[in-house]
C-alpha cells in the first residue's frame, strides 16, 4: 500500500499591483490561480503608487485566498506548504503577502517557503512543459531584464542584467511619449505590428562578451526622434516609431539570449515575464530558435504576467529541496536571486 500523497502548494504573490493566490499540485498542475489586478486603480496615476497598492492588497488578500481554495476544491488539510514571494518588489506590497503567508503557516501548521519573484517566473515553465537542464532563462518585464543560467533545478545564477532601464520600463516611457494609454507595453506591441522599422534606432550590444543590457540610449533616441519631429512640425508615423523601437529591443534580447545559450551550452531557452507576452519578441525568438536548433519554452500569456501559480510552482521545487523559512521571514525589496 504505497500511495504517494500529492504535494499541494498554496502560492501567494503581492510584490507589485496584483494580489494573487493559487494552488498547484506536484509543481505541475494548476488547480486554481486567482489574480485581483489593480491596474484600473493605478491607471489614473500613470503608474503604480506603492501606498495605494499596499492598501488594496490588504483589502483583497483573504478574498483572493478563499477563491484560490474554492476554485481548487481543496481544504486546508489537503495542503502541503505555503509559498510566498518575499522579494524583490515594493516593500509595503510584499509585506502584506508575507504577513498573510506566515499567518496561514502558523494557523494551519504548514511549512513556509519563501520564493524569489524571478524564480517564480522561471518555474512557471514547469506548468506548461518539461524543463531541460542546463538551461538559460530570459526574464523580461516592467521591472526586470535578466539572463539566468540554471545548471539544474534550484540553482539559479544571474549571468546578464540591465545596466540602466528594464526593457518594460523603456516600453512604458516610449508608450507615454507616443500618447498610448497605460499600461503602454501591450498597446505599443499592437501598434508596432502596423508599422515598419524605418528609423534604425541604436542597438546596444555592449562589449562582445557581455550578456548585459542597456536600453536608456535607445529610449533617448526614440524620445529625441519624436520630440524633434514635433518641434519641426513634421508628421510622425507613430506605428513606424513603435515598430522601429520594438525591432531594436527584440534584436538585442534575442541576440543576448542566444549568446548565453551558446556560452553555457544550454539544452533549452526559457522565456518569462510580462514582456514575454510580446508578439514581436515571440516571433523573433521562434525564428532564431528554429534556425539554431535550440528548444524554446515560453509560457502562455496568463502565466507570463504576475500570478501566484508560478510562485506555487517554484515553491514546490524549493520545498522538495528543503528550503523552508521560519516565522521571522521578512520582505526584502531588493532581494538577490543568488541568495536563494
Amino acid at each position: 500500500m504505497t500511495t504517494t500523497k500529492p504535494i499541494r502548494v498554496l502560492g501567494i504573490e503581492t510584490s507589485c499591483d496584483e494580489t494573487a493566490a493559487a494552488v498547484v499540485e506536484n509543481g505541475r498542475t494548476v488547480l486554481s490561480s486567482v489574480v485581483a489586478s489593480q491596474a484600473e486603480v493605478h491607471r489614473r496615476f500613470g503608474g503604480v503608487v506603492p501606498e495605494v497598492a499596499s492598501r488594496r492588497h490588504v483589502e483583497h488578500i483573504t478574498r483572493v485566498l478563499e477563491a484560490a481554495l474554492e476554485d481548487a476544491g481543496v481544504r486546508p488539510n489537503d495542503l502541503t506548504a505555503i509559498a510566498v514571494t518575499h522579494g524583490p518588489g515594493l516593500v509595503g506590497a510584499l509585506l502584506v503577502g508575507v504577513a498573510a503567508a506566515k499567518a496561514l503557516a502558523f494557523s494551519w501548521g504548514l511549512p513556509l517557503v519563501p520564493v524569489h519573484h524571478i524564480a517564480g517566473h522561471i518555474y512557471a515553465c514547469r506548468l506548461v512543459g518539461e524543463m531541460h537542464f542546463p538551461l538559460v532563462a530570459l526574464v523580461v518585464s516592467g521591472g526586470h531584464t535578466e539572463l539566468l543560467y540554471l545548471r539544474d533545478e534550484g540553482h539559479v545564477v544571474v549571468v546578464g542584467q540591465t545596466r540602466d532601464d528594464a526593457a518594460g520600463e523603456a516600453y512604458d516611457k516610449v508608450a507615454r511619449v507616443l500618447g498610448l494609454p497605460y499600461p503602454g507595453g501591450p498597446e505599443l506591441d499592437r501598434l508596432a505590428a502596423e508599422g515598419r522599422d524605418v528609423y534604425a534606432f541604436p542597438r546596444a550590444f555592449l562589449e562582445p562578451d557581455s550578456l548585459d543590457f542597456s536600453f536608456s540610449g535607445l529610449k533617448t533616441a526614440v524620445l529625441n526622434a519624436v520630440h524633434g519631429a514635433r518641434q519641426r512640425g513634421e508628421p510622425i508615423n507613430l506605428a513606424d516609431v513603435a515598430a522601429s523601437f520594438q525591432a531594436a529591443v527584440v534584436d538585442v534580447l534575442v541576440e543576448k539570449a542566444f549568446r548565453a545559450v551558446k556560452r553555457y551550452d544550454a539544452r533549452q531557452l526559457v522565456v518569462a515575464g510580462g514582456v514575454a507576452a510580446n508578439r514581436g519578441l515571440r516571433a523573433a525568438l521562434a525564428e532564431r530558435a528554429a534556425r539554431e536548433g535550440v528548444e524554446v519554452l515560453i509560457p502562455p500569456l496568463s502565466l507570463c504576467t504576475d500570478n501566484a501559480a508560478m510562485i506555487a510552482a517554484a515553491g514546490t521545487v524549493l520545498y522538495r529541496l528543503g528550503r523552508v523559512a521560519d516565522l521571522d521571514l521578512n520582505a526584502v525589496p531588493d532581494l538577490d536571486l543568488t541568495a536563494e
Binding site: 503604480v48 515594493l90 516592467g142 499600461p183 503602454g184 531588493d334
Partner: peptide, 14 residues
C-alpha cells in the same frame, strides 16, 4: 505623472 509604471525594488515607484 509619477515615475515609470512597474518598477520593482528601486526607482520612482518605490
Amino acid at each position: 505623472v509619477a515615475g515609470s509604471g512597474r518598477e520593482r525594488g528601486t526607482g520612482a515607484a518605490a
